[in-house]
Design a protein around this nucleic acid. Structure first.
Length: 590
RNA sequence: ACGCCCGUAGCUCAGCCGGAUAGAGCAACUGACUUCUAAUCAGUAGGUCGCGGGUUCAAAUCCUGCCGGGCGUGCCA
């Protein structure tokens, strides 16, 4: 059997168990394998506090007793007691040899697991309105949804990525109305405007005109009624304008690398849920008020009471029988589950809607849907500007396409600055610039934990230095460069000698690599891509430090060159993998 | 008023299912490109972990009370 990270860890724990049996006559109840704070202390650590409780002895004494009992084994070189800690040193030959071999063997699959046990999970994310272009908040949503989907897939889930498009409602009618009144038949094509921006411009125009002329509100309401009555002309216009928007959106999705397996349209789903309302009435979960509205009482122990002491209510159907937001969500939730046989259903939606989802999930639970517990609201914080919250109606937004272009341009300037002789083709520069610009944006939005509010300052927020996407891409490009140059050396007959590795930088690097699988598992379980960003950065940092202090290709001994090459190869795989999980591409040359 | 989230270095954040000396990045200052790519690296400086109590051998981490900020609180989505 091949040596692996899992096996080295298991061997270490087994050694502790055996030593405990020898010294204390029984196995330890709990053992946690950790890492010493400094690499020179050892490769793995076991803390003896839990053992102190079990064996009723000073933890430092226990550590010493166990350390004395540990015999060298296939991978364990020795154990040292430091205070209440037990530090293990793994033979460098095994640590570097087996681990890098494992990573190289598994390649892009390294770190994957089946801890998801083939569960089917839907990740609903993005969910835009079709009356205006995408903004920075959407990008945060998109990269989060995509990263979480990747994490789930890597841990053995089957993921269905869904986009619930809000394509109906009075706000959509507003841009339609403005276009009818003032556009004179202009189209995205005739004006050379991206479709979603084109429609968004008419929405803005509407808002301006409506300030002067309140009767427009009435007209847009009339239009919504015509839409609901199926007026052919209105429907045709609606379809045409939505198509313009979708063309624009899909361009942006593609640029950002956002993928969807299924699109739901609110125009199809907005009447769903009425059957569920009926069931709820029969079950007594819902009841009708005097004005005809159908409501539910929320349990007081979880939701508290209203000012007058009565239970909090949620309206699930208006008095006139029309749907509200939650009506549709009840129906859509059931439809999703049934169509896709889901075990879990994840909603990537901003924290503004925490209360809405609390209510929604509670209602599903009250209706005795046993799948309700599989629903989860992945709530993420707002992106604020220095002036405060983004407000599309006031034009206070960071437009998604503008931001991408801005970052791409900054990257391009940087690339041209590094290429004073103009060696690079325009196509190559464009490709690199977009890849690097997107990496900067995505990493910036994913590195902070998702529940945090981000304060986005356009002037200084996204950089290419330090804790950034481009930094990590750069570390990868360095690896790629070394591996490329290695092909010019005649090393085919040389066998690597991994026992030659073991300096501080090498140990730091191998530790970062070893920790990747556990980080991936945890990030997936907690839906926190930010964890991967941190691990990724630590790894890139370790690589850069190693790179500066030690030469790979001009190392004194060819067997050392080979060993370091394997380490660099393994690092490249892990860095690339972590970036890919975050939806970030790598470049072989930067 | 209630509910959820947040408060760690000048700024942005890790660390939070308790454990070794609280870590990064940015900004500031100093130094390193004839060397596998300097989008890099090394160093200096910067901390009452919001405040008070409690639990514990051990608290940034758990409990509790305050203070400050954000979001939300039935017929918008």
């Amino acid at each position: 059997m091949m040596m692996s990270i899992v096996r080295i860890k298991a061997e270490t724990l087994t050694a502790v168990e055996a030593a405990c049996e020898n010294v204390f006559g029984q196995k330890p109840e709990t053992l946690k394998l950790g890492y010493p704070p400094k690499v020179e202390f050892g490769d793995f650590a076991v803390e003896c506090f839990p053992l102190a409780k079990q064996f009723r002895q000073n933890p430092a004494k226990i550590a010493q007793a166990i350390a004395a009992e540990i015999q060298p084994s296939e991978s364990i070189q020795g154990a040292t007691a430091v205070g209440p800690y037990l530090n293990f040193k793994i033979y460098n030959r095994v640590l570097f040899g087996a681990v890098s071999a494992e990573i190289i063997r598994e390649g892009a699959d390294f770190g994957n697991s089946d801890s998801g046990r083939c569960q089917r999970v839907m990740v609903e994310y993005m969910s835009p309105n079709t009356n205006k272009p995408l903004h920075l908040g959407h990008i945060r949503n998109g990269v989060l949804g995509m990263a979480v989907s990747n994490l789930l897939e890597a841990t053995g889930h089957t993921v269905v990525k869904a986009n619930l498009v809000n394509d109906r409602g009075v706000h959509i009618c507003k841009s339609m109305l403005a276009w009818l009144k003032w556009a004179n038949g202009a189209t995205p094509e005739s004006t050379g405007t991206k479709g979603d921006h084109f429609v968004g411009d008419w929405y803005v125009r509407y808002a301006k005109e409506a300030e002067k002329d309140p009767s427009l509100e009435v007209e847009s309401q009339q239009m919504l009624r015509k839409w609901e009555d199926g007026d052919p002309e209105t429907l045709t216009l609606w379809k045409t304008m939505n198509e313009w928007v979708y063309d624009g959106f899909s361009e942006t999705y593609q640029k950002l690398g956002l993928e969807f397996d299924v699109f739901y349209y609110e125009s199809d789903t907005y009447k769903l849920g009425k059957d569920i309302i009926q069931t709820g009435l029969e079950k007594g979960v819902f009841f009708q008020e005097e004005d005809g509205a159908i409501v539910a009482n929320l349990p007081v122990d979880e939701f508290g009471t209203d000012k007058d002491g009565s239970p909090k209510k949620v309206t699930v159907l208006r008095g006139d029988g029309t749907s509200v937001y939650i009506t549709q969500d009840l129906g859509t939730a059931q439809m999703k589950l049934e169509e896709h046989q889901l075990d879990r259903s994840i909603y990537v939606v901003a924290s503004e809607q925490n209360y809405h989802f609390q209510c929604l999930f509670k209602l599903l639970d009250m209706l005795d849907f046993d799948w309700a517990s599989g629903c989860y609201h992945l709530s993420y914080g707002m992106v604020n500007l220095p002036e405060g919250k983004m407000k599309s109606r006031e034009g206070r937004v960071v437009d998604a396409d503008d931001l991408i272009e801005e970052m791409r341009q900054l990257a391009e300037d940087e690339i041209r600055g590094r290429d004073p002789d103009g060696q690079l083709s325009t196509a190559e520069i464009q490709k690199r610039a977009l890849t690097i610009g997107l990496a900067a944006i995505k990493f910036y939005l994913l590195r902070a934990r998702h529940e945090l509010t981000i304060n986005f300052d356009p002037k200084e927020s996204i950089s290419f230095d330090g804790f950034t996407g481009p930094y990590c891409q750069y570390a990868y490009a360095r690896c790629a460069s070394i591996l490329r140059n290695a092909q010019n050396q005649d090393l085919a007959s040389v066998e690597p000698d991994f026992s030659l590795l073991g300096n501080e930088e090498e140990l730091q690097l191998i530790r970062a690599l070893i920790q990747f699988p556990e980080e991936l598992a945890e990030a997936a379980q907690e839906f926190t891509p930010a964890r991967i960003c941190n691990r990724l950065f630590t790894t890139a940092q370790a690589l850069n430090q190693f790179y500066h202090k030690h030469s790979v290709l001009s190392a004194e001994d060819p067997a050392l060159v080979k060993a370091r090459l394997a380490l660099v190869h393994a690092s490249a795989i892990v860095i690339k993998k972590a970036l890919a999980l975050m939806g970030i591409e790598t470049l072989e040359v930067m």
